[in-house]
Design a protein around this nucleic acid. Structure first.
Lengths: 384, 384
DNA sequence: GATCATACATTTCCTCGGGAAACTAAGGAA
DNA sequence: TTCCTTAGTTTCCCGAGGAAATGTATGATC
């Protein structure tokens, strides 16, 4: 509870431990630039309050000198619930301080009415809270709700959600009163980016982007440890980069959007045309392509090409150290990975091509974990 | 000289005055969140060293209470020389603390040999220094050299310059020894962005982008007061966003690059084809288009469309508060402005279209002014 | 096995930055 | 005049963190 009012050095030490795992005090001092004395002083209250724990000796002992003691964040010190809201279901996860999932839950949404969704969230949170109690876990500290669209985390308002058709819904406040637990909300992709930044493939990078491929194509951008929000709430709209040619029309009304070519919907639709089977599913399309169906393969290959152009655009503009590709669509990733990399390499300008492309599967609860990460982040990095 | 070792509050006050012009101490305190006492304490040494001056009463007097005293940065306290290096000439400018130009100079480059360029820079600096002496100005504090390509400002090295065909040239060191004056170097577009951020249309914005149209098409991106550098030295490569269709081949070998369609070179070339006159100049093309030549107009309109797609890409990814369009190419801006705005509005996703598009002419010395701004910035914002 | 060297950790002391609040300054209004 | 209001200054104080002396636990050395 007292984490919020630590001196700057305290927060710095805590975040260093969070990002880099168990370290000795001396090592923490070196990495943060703090003096040894300051580290000791600042770790004392964190230890006393149980935010960090001593772990004993490091695995690789030093040749001589007094042996060091590892300290690490005490992940169990606080619990969070993360909830991802989609158009038709809720995904919830109970997680610890390091956003490790302890339990998950899903529930279908009967309607998209605000009151109904809030009620469903409260029920889901109750479920997870009960599970936490059963596990002997302590009280849930706060809730992080994530949702696609234009979300203002400062005011806790969903400015606009296309999937739910919501406008200016004070969701944080509503969930807070329905559950009695402090709640923060955030855009789903940005929450995922926060999770990657603190606990995933973005740890320690000066800049990186997370691209998610699924029903939509989204992107979170982190530069210098801060996730880019966009002055008007919009950022990372990779799905609507106009690099896809003129043949397909996007839901936004334009031609050329990446989403109109490379989203799972778009691929399925194109595969149906290519195969002549109007009821073809994504799984079947993948199977056909793997079996060598040229027309269907071409669909994946074209999608890969457009994705490559999109990633090259990100690299050319931002120059991130790494781009993390993730999402349901990654199930069929091997089908177009080569094409993505090839197109990316061709269109990334100069040293931008040194950008590291990595693929990470995105388990369904990962989205919800992002919510927990955002909730946790408010605790230890209460900036802004 | 003592500006570098001011306490944080001192730097904050100075930067506030730099960005927002003359203010009363009370107002400075309000804007920075500092207590009145702190403002007084911190301004005292700045006044004593001549970094700021008192300006007397504000224009709009307050109804009651003690009259306030304005304080403002003393622009003449320090001089800087900014130099922009292109493939065939040098542009130099003598500027004050606020990067206001006091004198300019140009010189042609006989060869692109490193030694020759360094010598030419030293001569140009000498010229401007003499002019400063004649004006009774004080010593030049430092030099900022800007150059397009991959520039590492930390080490003072030009990693790669396509126009000059340089690789790993320690330019800062070379100019420093040749002139005897401390020198910093920076990528030209990023330097321009720094100038806009501190002294131009980017003052006070949480994020903005500067797009320059000319022989190449470049872009500087500023987010949260920091100019994005790219992990591998590449960022803002708007010129190579692949949104331009497949019909024209770029110097980088790809099709679809913005630069292959909308740079001044590309427009001239396309206008020549459209008009059938292989010796057509840009000026003549502009005249033809203004006169109603449909084919030439179409060239400008297509370039505008592709520029609109590029700006929409920037807006969709970053969500800047404003995009500043600038460059030599802007001479013919009215010819395709409508098309740019129309395409931008169509392809900027959701609230990203609220991004403010402004056009600023780019006088030839503006590039060099960027160098002076970078040099000045090192003085008052000596971060990293 | 006593001593030493070494590196980790703690404690003590001190400096410095900036806030709180009392105080001074300078004008207008009653 | 006196009072009110806002600007600016001074004084006092507290908290954060660095420097350096001190304490501590190990292996190495004689």
């Amino acid at each position: 509870m007292t984490l919020a009012d630590q001196p700057p050095a305290g927060a710095l030490v805590f975040q260093t431990l969070l990002a880099h795992g168990p370290l000795t005090r001396a090592e923490v001092g070196r990495r943060t630039g703090l003096s040894p004395g300051a580290v000791t002083k600042v770790t004392a209250p964190l230890l006393a309050d149980g935010w960090i724990t001593e772990l004993g000796r490091p695995a690789v002992e030093r040749a001589n000198g007094r042996p060091a003691t590892l300290i690490a964040v005490h992940a169990g010190r606080a619990r969070f619930v993360g909830v991802k809201v989609t158009g038709d279901e809720l995904i919830g996860v109970l997680a610890d301080l390091t956003a490790q999932p302890l339990a998950t839950a899903r529930t279908a949404l009967a309607s998209r009415d605000v009151g109904n969704v809030v009620l469903a969230i409260a029920r889901l949170v109750g479920e997870l809270r009960a599970e936490a109690d059963a596990m002997g876990e302590r009280e849930v500290h706060s809730i992080g709700v994530t949702i696609s669209g234009d979300v203002d985390g400062q005011t806790g308002t969903v400015q606009y959600s296309p999937f739910l058709d919501w406008r200016r819904v004070p969701l944080a406040q509503l969930v807070e009163t329905a559950t009695g637990t402090p709640t923060v909300i955030e855009n789903d992709v940005r929450a995922l980016t926060v999770a990657e930044q603190w606990f995933g493939a973005g740890v320690g990078l000066s800049s990186f982007a997370v691209v998610t491929v699924g029903a939509g194509i989204g992107c979170g951008i982190s530069i210098g440890g801060r996730v880019v929000s966009g002055a008007h709430g919009v950022s990372g709209e990779v799905g609507h980069l106009p690099v896809g040619g003129t043949d397909r029309v996007c839901t936004c009304g334009n031609t050329g959007c990446v989403e109109a070519v490379a989203s799972t919907h778009a691929i399925t639709e194109q595969a149906r045309q290519a195969s002549g089977d109007p009821a073809l599913t994504m799984d079947e399309a993948v199977r056909l392509a793997h079996a060598g169906d040229g027309a269907v393969r071409a669909v994946f290959s074209h999608a890969g090409h457009v994705m490559g152009l999109a990633l090259a655009s990100v690299a050319n503009l931002i120059g991130p150290e790494r781009i993390i590709i993730s999402g349901e669509g990654v199930a069929s990733y091997d089908l177009y990975e080569d094409q993505i990399r090839q197109t990316f390499a061709a269109h990334a300008f100069g040293a931008a091509s040194e950008c590291d492309l990595v693929v990470r599967p995105l388990p369904f609860e990962e989205w919800a974990r992002g919510g927990a990460a955002v909730a946790a982040q408010r605790l230890f990095a209460p900036t802004k």
